[in-house]
């Protein structure tokens, strides 16, 4: 199993697009904190930004494009053709010849993805929060370790969500479009919370409440419940994806 995970890690980190995801995801949040520093200071001084407990943590949400890309391409790269000679041939054929047990393959892929994204999230969270402390230390309280851990969990679950959807669609464009649109400032999920209170239980809205306190949502969910709701979504979608992956021909 260890060698399988190592193989999957190597495969993932050998993709140029994976590095786009890694670099983009890791740098975006700290850069935003840095660029926004003058505005944030002015807002704190003017008294328009009173609740500073989310400072830094909120910015972490912007880097989510990184884990999304990683989660999608772990799967979609298997479905791209290997060359013009045989338009039917895909990398997955090679993969499954090397690892015929699809269950073991999925387990290895999932582990590799979790390792990469959790590491990325830890680095990003450390950089973003340290930067926030340096820039606005006197106003922003040091966030509790549990909230930082929850933010890292949120990143990992988001990557797994992207991964599960791609397992179902077998195509990277659909989940990427869906997820990137939904990570924009006014996300579709947020729009839906204006229509029905149930939307508060959508994975991204619920998940964010694990570590963000002052969220504009119709139903407040306690951090632990929020984590469970998001995990339930991920587990359910992963189960569907795994069953399909198991049943379908390559």
């Amino acid at each position: 199993m260890v060698s399988l995970v190592r193989a999957e890690l190597r495969k993932l980190l050998g993709l140029p697009t994976a590095w786009i995801g890694l670099v983009l995801g890791t740098l975006t949040a700290p850069v935003i904190v840095l660029l926004n520093a003058p505005y944030t200071r002015r807002a704190i001084a003017a008294g328009t930004l009173t609740d500073t407990t989310d400072l830094g943590l909120r910015d972490l949400g912007i880097g989510l494009i990184g884990p999304m890309i990683l989660g999608v391409i772990v799967v979609s790269s298997e479905y791209t053709s290997t060359g013009p000679d045989a338009p039917g041939a895909r990398q997955l054929t090679t993969t499954l010849t090397a690892v015929p047990s699809r269950r073991r393959l999925l387990a290895a892929k999932t582990t590799a993805l979790i390792l990469v994204v959790a590491a990325q999230a830890a680095v990003t969270a450390a950089a973003t929060l340290t930067l926030t402390q340096v820039l606005h230390g006197e106003h922003a309280p040091t966030p509790a370790p549990a909230r930082v851990a929850a933010a890292i969990l949120y990143w990992t679950l988001t990557a797994l969500l992207a991964y599960a959807i791609t397992l179902i669609t077998r195509n990277g464009i659909v989940p990427l479009t869906l997820l990137i649109i939904n990570s924009s400032v006014v996300s579709v999920s947020y729009l839906l919370t204006k229509v029905t209170d149930l939307a508060a239980y959508l994975p991204d809205i619920a998940g964010a409440q694990m570590f963000i306190r002052s969220a504009d949502v119709p139903v407040e969910i306690a951090p632990l419940t929020a984590g469970l709701v998001m995990t339930a979504w991920v587990v359910a979608l992963l189960a569907v994806g795994a069953v399909l992956f198991h049943r379908r021909d390559v």
Binding site: S81, P84, D85, P87, G88
Partner: peptide
């Protein structure tokens, strides 16, 4: 040339 040159 190599392949069919057709979209799959």
């Amino acid at each position: 040339l190599d392949g069919s040159g057709a979209h799959r």
